[in-house]
Every structure is written in structure tokens, then in C-alpha cells.
């Protein structure tokens, strides 16, 4: 057993487990994106950053890849951690604003602006599909190719691979293409509508309208919110929310109360 202190909680973790394992066991919330229980940890998305160490010598590490060590002091929600996560998320959303996973995460974290120019790409290079294909499907039909800004995930020579069984696991696990969010406001590329409890969500009615965003019967009175649907055949196409951006602070759901949650004792003070 390895003794660690995580958010002020003394805990004896089994050897070989990661900080993320311990945090999950204790119910401490750490956002993750490129992590999946069935796959090897990768530490690529940097959203699961936590602060380790004491005093002035603290540093940020990815909790999904950092194994527990004796006497480790971890803090999962300091200002430094949250600022770093928000920055990472901002960059990810600038890369791929149409990911519902990312938009939900942004709404949950309270990200209110994206300062970077949106690139509208379809891939965030989290590597989930590559690991899924290799580790769970044992196919390894896709992989990273090229490098730097030309990096992409593809089959060899961009042609159908003999190793691919068309199982669809890569699509299943993709956080960017499976759940599409077609609603982000082009001005700030943030949406967060689904997370903010607007019913029905895109996916509930998308089949009816054969589009990814069928927010037709939105109850404007009860929510004080409207929705934009890009499809021309839907009548109630544009209902402007009363002088507010889509993610108005007053009508959004309260964010998770991290500060007062049990076990969030924090030396630096959260936010």
C-alpha cells in the first residue's frame, strides 16, 4: 500500500494505481477526455491535470498516467489546475467546436470564452480511436501518420485497410465525431446548451428531422431560451433568447459546487 494525501484526504492506495484511480475511488471529480478505462492511459489531452508537491515546489502532472508514490501530496482543484484545464479546453474547442463532449465539458467547467480562432477541424488527436483499434479490437488498422501540423489519423496510404473489419469501434469512442454539436455560436464557438438542461436535446429529436440539431419544440417560456436550427425546413428556426448570449449566466444550471463538496479541503483555496 502507498500512502498519499489527495485534497487533504489521507488514503492508502494500492501499488501501481494512478492518481486518477484514487480520485475516482474517492469520488473526486477530475475531467478526462483521452482516458478510457478499457484502454491504456495516454496522458495526451492534459485535461486531467492535477497539482502535486508541497510549498513552492509544486507541478502539474496528468493524473491518468502518474502512478501513486509514497507520501505524494495531490490537489485536484487548485486555481492553477483549473486555469490550466480551462486553457487546454479552450485550445481543444478552438480545434473542434463541433464536439458535443467538449462543449458539455466547457459548460460544466464554466468556460465563458474561447480566445483562439476556431479551426473547425474534425479531430482533436486524442488517440482514443487508435488505441481502441489496437488494444480492444486487435486490428491496428489506423494509426498516426506524418508529424507536426500535418499529423493525422489514417489508414496506411489513405486507402481501405485489410486490417480493418469495419467494426466501428473507432467511431464509437470518438469524442469529436460521434456526438456532434452543431449549435456553437460562431462568435464565441461555445454552446453548452445540452448541458444546461434545455429539452429536448439535439439527439432526442435529431432523427425526426434528419438533422443533428432539431430543437423545434423548445419551450421558450419555461427556459427563457431559444435555439437556432440551421435546417431551413424547420419553421421555428430562430428564436432569440431575451437579450442574452446562448449561455446566459442567469439561466444556466448552477455549476457543480466544487468548493463545498466533501473532501475538497485545499491548501491554496479553490478559485
Amino acid at each position: 500500500m502507498t500512502h498519499i494525501t489527495i485534497d487533504g484526504i489521507d488514503f492508502d492506495a494500492s501499488k501501481g494505481s494512478t492518481i486518477l484511480d484514487v480520485a475516482k475511488f474517492l469520488g473526486l471529480e477530475i475531467p478526462t477526455l483521452c482516458y478510457d478505462e478499457g484502454l491504456s492511459a495516454w496522458g495526451g489531452c492534459r485535461l486531467c491535470l492535477v497539482e502535486i508537491g508541497t510549498g513552492k515546489r509544486t507541478r502539474l502532472v496528468s493524473s491518468c498516467t502518474y502512478p501513486v508514490e509514497e507520501g505524494l501530496v495531490v490537489r485536484t482543484a487548485t486555481k492553477r489546475v483549473i486555469d490550466a484545464r480551462k486553457m487546454v479546453l479552450e485550445l481543444l474547442i478552438a480545434q473542434c467546436p463541433t464536439s458535443k463532449t467538449l462543449q458539455d465539458m466547457a459548460a460544466k467547467m464554466g468556460l465563458d470564452k474561447v480566445r483562439f480562432k476556431p479551426k473547425w477541424e474534425d479531430c482533436i488527436y486524442c488517440g482514443l480511436c487508435v488505441r481502441m483499434c489496437e488494444e480492444q479490437m486487435n486490428a491496428k488498422a489506423i494509426g498516426f501518420a506524418n508529424r507536426g501540423e500535418k499529423l493525422k489519423i489514417t489508414t496506411p496510404f489513405n486507402i481501405n485497410s485489410e486490417d480493418c473489419r469495419k467494426c466501428g469501434a473507432c467511431i464509437y469512442i470518438c469524442p469529436a465525431c460521434t456526438l456532434r454539436c452543431d449549435g456553437p455560436n460562431p462568435e464565441n464557438v461555445l454552446c453548452g446548451r445540452c448541458y444546461n438542461d434545455l429539452q429536448p436535446t439535439c439527439l432526442d429529436v435529431s432523427d425526426d428531422y434528419n438533422c443533428w440539431m432539431g430543437l423545434k419544440y423548445l419551450n421558450v417560456e419555461s427556459t427563457g431560451f431559444g435555439a437556432v436550427c440551421p435546417s431551413p425546413h424547420i419553421e421555428a428556426s430562430f428564436i432569440t433568447p431575451p437579450n442574452s448570449s446562448r449561455r446566459s449566466k442567469s439561466s444556466s444550471l448552477p455549476l457543480p459546487d466544487i468548493q463545498n463538496a466533501p473532501g475538497y479541503g485545499c491548501e491554496n483555496g479553490v478559485r
Binding site: 491496428k140 489506423i142 494509426g143 501518420a145 508529424r147 489508414t155 496506411p156 496510404f157 485497410s161 486490417d163
Partner: peptide
């Protein structure tokens, strides 16, 4: 393409691995 496949076959690797390495380095050309 044949050479890459052959290399993967001979070295017991997957084609995507060989392709990933070969496309990473500018010294290799397809």
C-alpha cells in the same frame, strides 16, 4: 506500398506502424 507491406510482414509489425514511422521522417518518401 508493396515494400511497406512486405516490411511489415517480414518484421512482424502492423502496416499502420510501419506507415506511421515512414511518414514521420522526411527522409522517407512514398
Amino acid at each position: 506500398e508493396e515494400a511497406v507491406k512486405e516490411v511489415a510482414n517480414k518484421l512482424g509489425m502492423k502496416i499502420s506502424d510501419v506507415y506511421g514511422v515512414a511518414s514521420f521522417y522526411t527522409a522517407f518518401s512514398f
